[in-house]
Design a protein around this nucleic acid. Structure first.
Lengths: 209, 209
DNA sequence: TGACATTGGATAGTATGACTCTCCAAACTT
DNA sequence: AAGTTTGGAGAGTCATACTATCCAATGTCA
């Protein structure tokens, strides 16, 4: 298909398509002369990925470029794949390096390959940011939350078991996390409301005194 | 204290402080003449809130303004408080209104006051966005995740039980969610790695074939 | 075959958000 | 009295993510 059809079918304007091509978010179409190129389903799929990362994941264009490059040249091992996905999804740098005491706390969770993975680093950074803002997460709380997230992760990793290519598995892991992170956080809020309703009653208005 | 001291102690530059004052993120200091005003600990605390929301929560300035207004004029009821907190923390509008089928799915979770809370709406929107991007979350998965998040929420709401003012409780709920959402997501990734390691072995590199 | 639309590619411009800078006169400090 | 600091207002800056314009070379269709 030509660029105009790609634009129509993807819902992305031609100027934006050209921008994505320039920025390396979209691989070039097959050139058929100086002023003609054709695009195919791989471009449509890529655009869906890009729009998901941008709209839902709020990733910057630069981060999206990292993601598509990783998907186009994925690591070979299953485990490295997950690391690459988590690396791609790391939150924007808020406060910087994790505090030493945050790293120590990871040891208490007895995880495999503790402080070496992107996820562990992410956790240490999140704990550091919370501590800096005066919020402490108790060790028991952290352990309990980890158990809860383990139950969630059981569901997650099952999805990556299929015999697909590394690039496909990586894309799957990234898109899956980007799309379901908001679901998970919304479920947390819903659960908070449920617990609150149980404790304080479901009546529409109650004064706190 | 004067603005220069407020700047030093908070780590926020004077121009930015003036900007926050203009934008209503920071309440005015006590005027003591045309060119003098004093600030106190309430300003320091407010700045810590604003910086947390901006740096960790990535909230826009406009959203932060909503938050501080809500904290300054909070709803009276305990339950409305949580709703106000969730309203403040709603994700940026990605795809818009939730699909009808997403709303139907909430009914299957047998929650109190299902489709009326900000959190339920957030969940419906997240499910809609996922579906639009071609990702379906199975009902059993959703139910399982809800159970997991309920365990998390038990810890959360306990923190709001204290006999504090509504404004303080609201601030607590908002800051708590903003600071621990990243912790929770990082724990999810860590758990994914743990599960992956269990299934595929902990060896540093394994080819997928 | 020739007018006219489309394309790839390059360059420049725009909109938004979040600051940051500059001024000014009126205090305050010394 | 000289010099610094302040509150307040307005304009300027910077980054990000597009969006618009131009151009010559095709392609298409009457």
């Amino acid at each position: 298909m030509r660029i105009s059809e790609l634009s129509e079918r993807s819902g992305v304007t031609i100027p934006t398509l050209k921008y994505y091509l320039r920025e390396g978010l979209l691989h070039p179409g097959e050139l058929q002369g100086a002023t003609r190129a054709t695009y195919d389903d791989s471009h449509l799929e890529r655009l869906r990925l890009v729009r998901t990362l941008v709209d839902v994941g709020r990733l910057s264009i630069e981060r999206v470029r990292e993601v598509v490059r990783a998907i186009d040249a994925p690591p070979a091992g299953r485990h490295e794949l997950l690391g690459a996905a988590h690396e791609a999804l790391r939150p924007h740098p808020a406060s910087g390096a994790p505090a030493p005491e945050a790293l120590e706390r990871l040891a208490a969770l007895d995880l495999p390959e503790c402080a070496h993975s992107p996820a562990s680093l992410q956790l240490a950074e999140a704990l550091t940011a919370a501590a800096a803002a005066g919020w402490s997460v108790e060790p028991e709380t952290l352990a309990r939350w980890l158990e809860a997230m383990r139950a969630v992760a059981e569901t997650d990793v099952v999805a990556e078991l299929g015999e697909v290519s590394p690039g496909e598995a990586l894309r799957y892991a990234i898109v899956g996390n980007v799309l379901t992170d908001p679901v998970l956080l919304a479920l947390r809020r819903v659960a908070q409301e449920a617990v609150s309703a149980e404790r304080f009653g479901t009546g529409p208005t109650r004064s706190p005194g």
